[in-house]
């Protein structure tokens, strides 16, 4: 442990901070559990790679990549790419719901107006 390079200390501390940050976000309800899961997985993968340095080398050689950090970047980019698609899906779903809500609001407003007119007619 005493010959741990400074960059490793840095990445371990960094991963832990990210995990704590995520926990705090979920705790204070600024991030929904269901959406935090993916980020937790990514953060723990980070932590795993920083604790176990050989793992990255092994994964890289398994993928046939000579330069280990390149494998890390590749994995990261694929992960982020998938995550972005996931968000687009969520946004699509939200915009559909949003559209239905505004249509409903428009139709309800009309109903309220007609009801008001009807009630005013009875009163007078």
């Amino acid at each position: 442990m005493n010959n741990m390079p400074i960059f490793q200390v840095f990445s371990i501390v960094g991963s832990l901070i990210i995990i704590l940050f995520l926990i705090e976000l979920v705790r204070s309800r600024r991030l929904k559990e269901s959406y935090s899961l993916l980020w937790f997985v990514i953060a723990f993968v980070f932590l795993l790679f920083s604790l176990w340095r050989d793992l990255l080398e092994r994964v890289a050689s398994l993928m046939g990549i000579g330069y280990a950090p390149a494998a890390l970047f590749l994995i990261l980019i694929i992960g982020l790419y998938l995550l972005s698609i996931h968000f687009s899906v969520v946004i699509s779903r939200l915009s559909e719901k949003n559209k239905n809500l505004s249509q409903e609001i428009g139709l309800l407003n009309l109903k309220i107006k007609e009801l008001k007119k009807w009630i005013d007619g009875i009163k007078s």
Binding site: Q103, I105, L107
Partner: peptide, 15 residues
Amino acid sequence: VTLPYNLGIGGAVQT
């Protein structure tokens, strides 16, 4: 019927 914001032609027609 007045929509609360601009939905685009599809959303308007469907309303």
